[in-house]
Amino acid sequence: MPQVVQVVVYPAAPDGGRRVRVAGSFVGMAYTVIDIVEFLRAAGLEDVEPEDVVSAEWIEWRGGGPGAWVH
Rank of each mutant, 00 (worst) to 15 (best):
E49Q: 13
F26V: 15
V8L: 11
V48N: 09
G17H: 06
W61G: 06
A56P: 01
V7L: 04
P11H: 08
V70W: 10
Y10S: 11
A56T: 02
M29V: 07
A23K: 11
V20S: 04
F26E: 11
V37N: 01
G64Q: 07
S25P: 00
A23G: 08
G63I: 12
P14K: 11
V53T: 09
P14I: 08
P14G: 09
A56L: 03
V22G: 01
Y31C: 01
R18D: 03
D47L: 06
V27D: 08
A43K: 09
T32L: 01
E49L: 09
V70N: 11
V5R: 15
T32F: 02
A42Y: 00
V5P: 00
W61H: 13
V33T: 12
V37E: 05
L40V: 11
V9C: 12
G65C: 10
P11C: 11
M1S: 12
R62W: 08
F26H: 14
D35T: 04
G67D: 15
D15V: 02
W58F: 11
V8K: 14
V22K: 01
V7W: 03
W69V: 03
E38P: 00
V7H: 04
V20K: 02
V48Y: 08
D47N: 12
V20Y: 03
D15Y: 06
R41G: 03
V27M: 08
T32C: 11
D47C: 00
V53D: 04
L40I: 09
A68F: 15
R18W: 02
G16A: 02
P14A: 14
E49A: 05
V37G: 01
R41Q: 15
Q6P: 02
Q3R: 13
E57N: 10
A30C: 06
W61K: 13
R18Q: 06
V70Y: 04
Y10C: 01
G63F: 10
G67M: 05
R62G: 04
V5W: 12
E60T: 15
E46K: 13
E60C: 08
E38T: 13
A42K: 10
G67K: 06
Y31E: 01
A12T: 13
I34E: 14
W61E: 10
D35R: 02
E38V: 14
G16F: 02
